[in-house]
Design a protein around this nucleic acid. Structure first.
Lengths: 241, 241
DNA sequence: GCAAAAGTGTTAATGCTACACCCATGT
DNA sequence: ACATGGGTGTAGCATTAACACTTTTGC
């Protein structure tokens, strides 16, 4: 029996299939605090609770494709930095049936959320409160604009917590911070993003020099407008390194 | 309709399910080089090629449970450091059908492979050759004991490559190196593991002090035996920090 | 005593922190 | 002129890299 004969006789149903979904941790930084996009559940289970935008993976699309589809159709956004985070597969994580969920995070600057939030009333941009420090990790809390805690659906508090931990870890050596900023940004804005994600204040001159020495920033010569004080220089992220 | 009524009427087949598997990158360090356990495929597709030990996830077991089951039944080992690596979900990664694979890595000291290798003739401990440097990543090559390149099945060269990249990244700030060593080990053995994974020589006094200052090592007062020169002190990994 | 590898001390370089200060802009 | 935040210089501290050196064992 050669390979093509084998494939013709092969019976895929011999192995019990599972449902596979992707969940998107779509994050940004607003007013010095990390935030994530949540969807109010309109159905059972966990009706009324807040969930990450997600969807089932179709047989003819890759995991990455599914993540981008969810970004476009559920979150009404595009052009995000998308990166796989972790896969969650506890047997009872969904009461309906067995679902394995591949969590992705997607990063965008805060301005990009405005259109989606007005277009889709079930969406909300929730502030993320991190109750742990350092490397420990664990679930986080989501808060509405009034500061009230939002009840989260399924294991999504854990997924959000892992996303925050990973974001903190990658901040120093990867370009994730730039995905949370517009094309042109000031060093102060970059520092604000770092401080929001790390949850600690940073020393201004040290941060400045570290960023400039790294060679990832391209000075544009342009300056910000509208400030009632000395306008800061605008930088761009240099992608070709 | 309340939640329990909803769940009774819910039809899981409304969403097309996929096959979900785990693949294990079971690694160690032998003679100063990284190595991984491979299985010679006895069936189509990719008959005769070398694959990572893997298996389908059952409906009543978590992803982590499946990884441990594969470790015991396919690799004939146990007690490894097991950690999720990444999920691979390209549509055509398996010619039989759509399979989403959750890759795990599992780490064990080299001595622990001997029994499994004699018990299961389809297994082989292959040396991993890393053709890239630094942060770039990419597929790696597997070589048999004679140095000949082994043809790898599916996308397993990519999975192995990602495992090497992740291992390099985690070496400095996590305890993965100790998972590759027996309970008692010398500082030289620890340095050999680091050098094998990083692929670069390290400065001896600097490495020594860095490790000791970190506080993760517990001196035992015992010394290695059988050396024809000054015996080195044996250390233990301190787990309670 | 000799070879081989363990283990230590000293110095130089580097990077980071903290603080003080100057600069440019709008009101 | 002044308030405000942008931007820079310098000194001190801690961490790391490099080299030379001493110590301990088996043969």
């Amino acid at each position: 029996m050669d390979e093509s004969e084998f494939l013709q006789e092969y019976d895929p149903t011999a192995y019990e299939p599972l449902s596979v979904a992707v969940d998107l941790v779509l994050m940004t930084v607003v007013d010095g605090a990390p935030a994530a996009l949540l969807v109010r559940r309109a159905d059972h289970p966990h009706l009324g609770r807040w969930a990450l935008p997600g969807g089932f993976v179709k047989p003819d699309e890759s995991l990455d494709d599914a993540a981008h589809r969810v970004l476009a159709t559920r979150a009404h956004m595009q052009g995000a930095w998308v990166e796989q985070l972790y896969s969650f597969g506890a047997v009872d994580r969904d009461p309906r049936m067995r679902i394995v969920s591949i969590a992705y995070f997607a990063l965008l600057p805060a301005e990009r959320f405005a259109a989606a939030l007005t277009a889709a009333p079930e969406l909300m941009l929730a502030t993320i409160a991190v109750p742990w420090a350092g490397e420990t990790g664990g679930p986080v809390e989501a808060r509405g604009p009034d500061g009230a805690a939002l009840p989260l659906a399924f294991d999504h508090a854990d997924i959000l917590g892992l996303a925050m931990l990973r974001l903190r870890g990658k901040l120093d050596y990867s370009a994730v911070a730039f995905a949370l900023l517009p094309d042109l940004f000031t060093l102060r804005a970059l520092q604000d993003v770092h401080e929001a994600i790390l949850g600690t204040p940073l020393n201004k001159p040290a941060f400045r020099r570290r960023m400039l020495d790294r060679g990832w920033l391209e000075p544009t010569g342009k300056r910000e407008t509208g400030a009632s004080f000395r306008p800061a220089e605008l930088f761009r992220h240099r992608t070709n390194v």
